[in-house]
Design a protein around this nucleic acid. Structure first.
Length: 443
RNA sequence: GGAGAGGUGGCCGAGUGGUUGAUGGCUCCGGUCUUGAAAACCGGCAUACCCGCAAGGGUAUCGGGGGUUCGAAUCCCUCCCUCUCCGCCA
């Protein structure tokens, strides 16, 4: 189990080192003395296997002797003696393998060459901007004020029943969330060719390894208390973690499978809640519902042939943008720089929605091409026509969209001077014909 | 939770300690035949790693892990998953 292919890393060490530097990471820390470790590993394997070959020969000798009724005791004794030494070498080889595995599973994907080099979001590049930006003749409010005023967003009681970073939606607030989910799924399935799936909201650690959340990002996840704890390097079928995104269960649907080339590309759309511990983001985005332990999301996932993944990445990103456009929400598309691109991704576009209540753009979707990175970890392959060789597929995904952030973007963009909120035209039918969200009676 | 049955290569399915990485069938690939196709026939067809310029050789893998043994797909332990029955439950 590894992330980048060992042979590739070995043959392209300098490239890998450069790509790591591009991400702002120190190759020496991540790779250690790669060549020496690799050489020692190979020496140990070679030696151990030679001994095993010898042992196997002797065992065959025993069989031959016994078959012809001859005495085999002496050979059996020799083999027995070989055993201790063999086991030693095996253990040493296993130790080296583990060292290499630990290194490889922590190397992030190599970013594509067109990804701008930079250490943080300041180096991201704005690719496009789309707007029907609303003009306000009053001071627009942030969504938490609007939500509270309307009686549809209840953060206080959420904190009481679940703790900080949770939300309770009442009345039209709950209805708007549900309308958004249905709207997004309908557009993607009816117009963009995605198949809807409803996966489990918990996954095992093997799945989290497959998409790249484990081992490195265990702290960002909620893990259920199972009999077995978690130790990096040990991935199970039977433990339970809350999903941080539908990407995990949906991409892993085809883990350890060989897909039919005729069915590619496969496009799946899934609604799920997402759970994130948000460790390390204390004090960040504490107001409103920008950053929550639980939020809802409609996720788009694709499995493609390697040569189509770039084109499909653009299509997927356009599919996400279509939702923003249909809802009349101003946004811009950012090409993330090397340092801001996620661990598993080779190239990522973030879509950022305009939030007039706060006067800034906020990420509402992240669309990534993982190329073969996840496919290699999860072992998802297909058999190209004409060649016998099974090949890793490319995987992609993107939010289409984050529902909670869409919800708050609508509040902020469609607010009116009196604090009520207009319902975007595209959602009216999903809201049962309702055109305005007014303060909840009896709130 | 209790009792039982089972997990073998892309798929189906043999195999209960000794040239079994694994019979056979299907799919797939190449070829013969055909105007073309089908059928028929012939041949090929697992993966990873190690050694090697290569040819080739070696090691490991029969759900996962551990054990017994000179030797394990085959025996033992354990975990996971699937199926049947019972109980409980949304």
């Amino acid at each position: 189990m590894r992330m980048l292919d060992l042979n590739f890393v070995r043959a392209n060490l300098e490239l890998v080192r450069n790509k790591l530097r591009g991400r702002g990471q120190d190759p020496a820390v991540l790779l250690g003395d790669f060549e020496a470790l690799d050489q020692r590993r190979r020496d140990r394997i070679t030696e151990g296997e030679q001994l095993k070959a010898q042992r196997n020969k002797l065992s065959e000798e025993v069989a031959r002797l016994k078959k012809s009724g001859q005495y085999a005791g002496a050979v059996m004794d020799r083999t027995r003696t070989l055993r201790a030494r063999t086991e030693e070498l095996e253990a040493a080889a296993a130790e080296s393998e583990e060292q290499m595995r630990a290194i490889l599973t922590r190397i992030p994907n190599l970013t594509r060459d067109e990804v701008p080099v930079g250490i943080d979001e300041r180096a991201n590049v704005e690719v496009k901007r789309w707007s029907t930006a609303p003009e306000f003749d009053f001071q627009p409010k942030p969504h938490w004020e609007l939500g509270e005023h309307l009686g549809i967003l209840d953060l206080e009681r959420a904190a009481k029943i679940a703790g900080a970073r949770f939300a309770v939606y009442w009345g039209d607030g709950a209805k708007l969330e549900r309308a958004l989910i249905s709207f997004m799924l309908d557009v993607h399935t009816r117009e963009h060719g995605y198949t809807e799936v409803l996966p489990p909201f918990m996954v095992n650690s093997k799945s989290l390894f497959g998409t790249g959340q484990l081992p490195k990002f265990a702290d960002d996840l909620f893990r259920c208390v199972d009999a077995e704890g978690f130790e990096p390097g040990k991935y199970r079928d039977s433990d339970h973690w809350l999903i941080p995104t539908a990407e995990v269960p949906v991409t892993n649907l085809y883990r350890e499978e060989i897909l039919d080339e005729a069915k590619l590309p496969i496009s799946l759309a899934a609604y799920t809640p997402c759970f994130r511990s948000e460790a390390g983001s204390y004090g960040k985005d504490v107001r409103g519902i920008i950053r929550q332990h639980q939020f809802q999301k409609v996720e788009l996932v694709k499995f493609t042939r390697p040569e189509e993944s770039e084109a499909e990445h653009e299509k997927l990103t356009r599919n996400a943008e279509a939702i923003l456009e249909r809802l009349g929400l101003p946004y811009r598309r950012m090409l993330l720089c090397t340092g801001d691109t996620g661990f598993s991704s080779a190239k990522t576009f973030d879509l950022e929605v305009w939030l007039p209540g706060q006067g800034l753009y906020r990420e509402i979707s992240s669309c990534s091409n993982f190329e073969a990175f996840q496919a290699r970890r999860a072992n998802i392959r297909y058999k190209p026509k004409g060649q016998g060789k099974t090949t890793l597929v490319h995987t992609l995904n993107g939010s289409g969209l984050a529902v909670g952030r869409t919800w708050l973007a609508i509040l902020e963009n469609y607010q009116q001077a009196d604090g009520t909120v207009r319902v975007p035209e595209a959602l009216v039918s999903y809201m049962g014909g309702q055109r305005t969200i007014a303060p909840r009676q009896g709130a």
